[in-house]
Amino acid sequence: MSASFTSALAAATEAAAGQHYPQGALYVVATPIGNLADISLRALHVLGLADTIACEDTRHTQSLLRAYGIDKSSHQLLALHQHNESEAAQAVVGRMHQGQRVAYVSDAGTPGVSDPGARLVAAVRALGLRAIPLPGASSVTSVLSVAGIGEDGGAGGFVFAGFLPNKSSERALAVEALAQQERAVVLLEAPHRIEALALALAPLGTRPVTVGRELTKQFEEVATVSAEGLVAWLAEDANRLRGEFALVLHPAPVVADTGADQRILQLLLAELPLKTAVKLAAEITGAPRNDLYQRALALKVEA
C-alpha cells in the first residue's frame, strides 16, 4: 500500500460509509486514467465493500487495489473483458442473485465508454437488477474541458466517436462524414495508430484539433493545432508518439451565406416596414439582427 493513500481510505470511510449500498447490485466504478489520486472517496469505499470485483484485467486491478491498501483475494476478482463479456456477465448475475455486491472496473476510466461494461450492464438491467454508477475519471470529459470549444460556435454539444475504424478506407469514409459535423467530435486513439489518424484528418485543413496526450499523467501534453498540421506536430518530438490520446475535432466553421440573406431581406423590404422585415429575415436566415438592420438601412438609402 502506498502510504500516501492511508488518509484517503480513512476519509473514504468517513465520507461514504454512512450511505446505503444495497446488496445484489452492480456498482459501475470509474477508476483513474493515469493519476492514482483521481479516485473518488466513494469508489474507494465501494471497492473495499464489494464481495466481488469484476475487472477487465485481474492483475492490473489487483495492483490498483493494493496501491490503495484494499485487500481482495484472487477468488473475489472475476475477469470480464471484451472477449468474454457475455459469458462473464452471467457469472456476475449469478453472484448478484446470491446477494453479493459486485463492482465492475475497466483498466482505466469509466466502464462502458470505449471499454467493456455495456453488455454487462444490459444483461443486469434486462433481469430487473440494479446497476449503480460511481462517476469519476474520463478522458472524454477531461479533453473537452481544456479544448475551449464553446468559443467555436457551431451547433453546440459534442459527438463521441471514440476509435475510428482500423482499415484506411473505412477510416477515410468516417473522416469524410465528420467533415460535415457541425458539433465538436471526441476521438480516442492508441499510440501505434495516431500517425494514421493524423494523416486521415489532414484533409480537414485548418479545422482545429485539440490533442490530449497522456492526460493526468506525468508527461501530459495538451495542444491545439490545425487538422492539416497534426502530422507535423507529432513529428516535432518523438515522445509525442507515446501514450494514449484523446482528441477534440472542433466544430466545423459556420459560413454565412450573405448573398441569400441579402436577397431575402430585399424581398421582405419590398412588402414590409423595415423593422418587421429585419425581424422576419433574422428568423428565416439565423443571421444577426443588428447586421441585417444595418444592411436594411443601406438598401433603403440606395433605393
Rank of each mutant, 00 (worst) to 15 (best):
V146P: 06
E182F: 02
Q294V: 11
L230I: 15
P191Y: 12
A281E: 01
L78P: 01
L297T: 04
D51V: 09
E176Y: 14
I132G: 01
E176I: 14
D291L: 04
G34N: 06
L178K: 04
L241E: 04
A17T: 15
V121K: 01
E214A: 13
L129I: 03
V29S: 13
L267V: 05
R207I: 12
E85T: 05
R125N: 11
A131G: 04
E151D: 07
T110C: 06
L120A: 03
T216V: 13
M1G: 14
Q218F: 14
W233S: 00
Q181S: 15
L164H: 13
N84H: 06
F245K: 04
E221M: 15
P203V: 14
L129C: 05
L144C: 10
V102R: 04
F160M: 04
V140K: 13
S106L: 06
E87G: 04
S106E: 08
I284G: 10
R207N: 09
L127W: 12
S63C: 15
E302M: 08
A298E: 12
V231Q: 07
P253I: 01
R59Y: 14
A200K: 09
A174M: 15
A50N: 09
Q100N: 08
H45C: 05
Q218S: 10
K167S: 15
L280I: 15
A108R: 00
V301H: 14
A118V: 03
A43H: 05
L249I: 11
A246R: 00
I194R: 03
N84Y: 07
A103D: 00
V175A: 09
P116I: 07
L26C: 15
S138L: 12
K275R: 07
A296Q: 00
A223Y: 07
G48Q: 05
G94I: 09
V254K: 13
L204A: 10
A91M: 07
T224C: 13
G148L: 12
F160W: 03
S138I: 14
P253V: 06
L234R: 03
G136M: 07
D57Q: 10
G148D: 09
D38G: 11
M96P: 02
L299E: 02
L215W: 01
S226K: 06
I284S: 02
V248C: 03
R66H: 13
Q62Y: 12
E302V: 06
H250Y: 00
E228R: 11
D152Q: 14
A89K: 03
R125Y: 10
E189T: 00
A89H: 04
V124L: 11
A190W: 12
A296F: 09
A118E: 01
P32R: 06
A122T: 07
V143T: 07
E87V: 03
A108I: 00
T61I: 13
R242M: 12
T216G: 11
L36W: 11
E244K: 05
R240T: 03
R42P: 10
S40M: 13
A25K: 06
V211T: 09
L297W: 08
G148Y: 09
K275P: 08
A238P: 02
A177S: 04
A10F: 14
R263P: 00
H81W: 02
G18R: 12
E220I: 14
K217Y: 05
R171W: 07
T13M: 09
L299M: 08
L65R: 02
L47G: 09
H75F: 11
